[in-house]
Amino acid sequence: MRNTVLIPTYRRPLDLSRCLSALQVQTKPVDRVMVVVRDTDAETWQFLSEFNPQNLPLHIVKVTQPGVVAALNAGLAAVEGDIVSITDDDAAPHADWLERINAHFVSDSCIAGVGGRDWIHRDTKIEDDSRQVVGKLQWFGRVIGNHHLGVGKPREVDVLKGVNMSFRTQAIGQLCFDERMRGTGAQVHFEMAFTLALKRAGWKMIYDPNVAVDHYPAQRFDEDQRHNFNEIAFINLVHNETLVLLEHLPPLRRAVFLFWAVLVGTRDSFGLVQWLRLLPSQGQLATKKWLTSWRGRWQGWQTYQQLKIQN
């Protein structure tokens, strides 16, 4: 099977260099590497002009619109081959990454997506905890990630993670990443929208912890600064999650999700219970997160209703 590796990048040339170096030593050689670069990203353009690709069939795609969704859609439009494997510029795939990915796709023609563990490096430490439940959408709408902690055998899941996900191009067809995802950079939950759309079409998603990348979370150049609260980023996250789940869930589960989201919620998308639980430890920050979550839920509902009217 012919593999295209797709890497969106923005102003992180040192991280990109590590990623490309990891692709140079794959046990199954890459057939095509596509790096999507913003037109204003002078640092990356300078790096690529001096980079020696050696055995990598490197292709550069220029994009003018900000955000990971625009970058990935620009890349998808130029993909060639049977499998497109997506990773981040701050990740380094293990040497057998493509070999293991291809083995899954060859084994079952009903598999549309394959993902795996991203081993997160923080300073000199690696997060080495373990979880059995990974990438699952519970019946009432809570999404369990844990892709960076997964252990055990390969299994079918609902959601893959953007830093380590591969797709059969035949299954993708004309599907694109959802441009309604908010954010100027990370656009959280974009991969959930994509993988759940494929699930609705009847395809399988497989998570295999041995399909692994090393992940070195790098600086972001947008409102979403990972572990620091930002009101706009928080609203965007909750909006995106709400929109995706409202579109995916059937009517009864959709109603249950809205009730649960408002009453309970999660640590990332507060409901009333989460606010009360975290108020003693987070104080005013908990209140800000709760109120911001309400705004994100409401805006996600509005976007969903607008789509229903248009259709």
Rank of each mutant, 00 (worst) to 15 (best):
I232F: 03
D268T: 13
R267Y: 09
V238S: 00
W260I: 05
R11Y: 09
A255D: 10
Q46N: 12
V30S: 09
C176R: 15
D268E: 12
Q219S: 01
T87M: 14
F234N: 10
R2S: 13
D118L: 11
F229E: 07
L263D: 01
G115P: 13
L72E: 03
D208N: 09
A95D: 02
W301A: 03
E179W: 02
V134E: 08
Q305P: 04
T169V: 07
N228E: 05
V264S: 04
Q132P: 02
E80W: 01
L237N: 10
G296C: 11
A233E: 07
G162E: 10
F257S: 00
M1S: 09
N102C: 13
D96S: 09
F177S: 04
R38A: 10
R267C: 12
F140H: 15
L72F: 09
R182H: 07
T195H: 07
C176D: 07
E223A: 15
V157L: 05
S130H: 11
R277M: 11
P93R: 07
D90H: 06
L72T: 05
E99L: 09
H104V: 13
R11V: 04
L198E: 01
L20W: 12
L249V: 05
R18I: 10
Q65V: 15
D129W: 02
D158A: 13
V84P: 15
G145T: 07
M181R: 04
L149K: 10
F51R: 05
P154F: 07
A112T: 08
M34V: 15
E231H: 11
D89R: 06
I83A: 01
I235C: 10
Y216G: 06
V273G: 00
Q138H: 14
C176L: 11
L23G: 04
H215N: 14
G152D: 02
V68Y: 03
R2Q: 14
W260M: 08
A91K: 00
K204M: 07
A218N: 06
A112R: 09
R226Y: 15
L20G: 03
L48C: 13
G81D: 06
Y10D: 08
N236A: 14
A92S: 14
D118Q: 11
D41M: 08
I172F: 06
R38F: 03
A193S: 15
V244N: 03
F140V: 06
R220G: 06
Q24W: 01
P8C: 13
A78H: 05
G202N: 06
M181T: 04
L279G: 00
Q138R: 14
D268I: 08
D108I: 11
R2N: 13
Q170N: 10
N102H: 03
I309E: 10
Y304R: 08
K308F: 02
V157H: 01
V188C: 09
G135E: 05
N240P: 03
L160K: 06
L285F: 02
L149W: 00
L76T: 04
S109F: 03
R11F: 04
D108W: 04
V61Y: 04
